[in-house]
Design a protein around this nucleic acid. Structure first.
Lengths: 185, 185
DNA sequence: CCGATTGGCTTTACACTGTCAAGTTGAGCG
DNA sequence: CGCTCAACTTGACAGTGTAAAGCCAATCGG
């Protein structure tokens, strides 16, 4: 019926909306179908059941994620120093996890699948992160430095996604900034 | 019927087993009930529906988690230096996430609930982590140092829980050890 | 000792879910 | 026209959480 915009894309966008509006439990084949105005079995037909829809949504999520990281980088003034770039991109990472927690969780819970598109999208995100920390490697072992800085960012995002852990701890990006500064020294 | 061991505990243990054996999708009120040999509505009666069972299981998970961290600490030789202690406890953290990924995810997805028992259990875990990194704070800002070291560990655990991220990256605890050493320098 | 009450559990029912098989529709093509 | 094939729809089924009602043994006030 809707010739404008093929159905698969419509379904993915419906899924993203449901995820953002209602959380993980809102993402349902039948709800996605209803939102896209098609029959309840249409989503399973295009993707491969619910798991297929979820990986498709996760893949699209990584594209949005990448776009936000790139935007954060491009929004910097041209004379910004490398640390400002590193901080901006990694703060965008964390902010994404706050703004779209259900999608963020789906993306990283979904990672181990063997879907090539998903792996590619995730790799692209990793590449832009890499670009920004390489200037700081210095004479440290690169693998350890990569691990440290990227686990720091992801861990901070994951632990503060809904509420601070441990409870009663205030959450703010400035504490992340200080931690990052500790690492890059 | 089973006078040995009250039903709530039986249900929690059934849930933990299902989680370990079948993953997150295996944790179902009805499956838990069947495994404990009671009617399908019994679990919802004792806990408060599925969410209540989940937080109860997460709480129990934090107790096991704490126990493993304490064991790792106590297994150290008495002449171990502080860094060995820090490393041992944090590696136990990561190993737990590998051995029981579904439970680990449930625990940290469940955190934002307002259940007091859960908060208490999570806090106890945090306390033992804290014990081991305080010797290394030195003259650094303590909040930033806490954030850094704890986000590093949790992020490493979360990202390598099922498979390495980014794909094609080898996972090993030694790369974590190097990263940790970078931080405590 | 006895009737009432209560808490632990069962039974029943219902709406909602994913998945599968079969049917429908419509466009492209010989 | 008739054939095919893909994109859906329809219908059915097992499994899910939840709520209401029932059952039943233990407990307790008298």
């Amino acid at each position: 019926m809707p010739m404008r915009g093929d159905l698969p894309r419509l379904l993915i966008e419906a899924g993203l909306a449901l995820l953002d509006e209602e959380g993980a439990e809102g993402l349902t084949l039948r709800r996605v179908a209803a939102r896209a105005g098609v029959s309840h079995a249409a989503p399973a037909h295009h993707f491969n059941g619910l798991p297929g829809l979820r990986t498709a949504i996760a893949t699209e999520g990584f594209c949005s994620f990448l776009h936000e990281l790139v935007s954060a980088r491009d929004a910097l003034p041209p004379d910004a120093d490398p640390f400002q770039g590193l901080l901006a991109v990694n703060q965008a990472y964390i902010r994404f996890s706050w703004r779209r927690p259900a999608l963020f969780r789906l993306m990283f819970d979904q990672l181990p699948t063997e879907n090539d598109d998903l792996r590619l999208a995730a790799r692209a995100v990793y590449a832009i992160l890499q670009d920004h920390w390489t200037p700081f490697v210095g004479n440290r072992p690169p693998a350890a430095f990569e691990t440290a800085i990227w686990a720091l960012t992801h861990g901070f995002a994951a632990l503060n996604m809904d509420r601070p852990y441990p409870p009663d701890t205030p959450v703010n990006l400035s504490s992340y900034e200080d931690a990052l500064r500790l690492l890059v020294g």
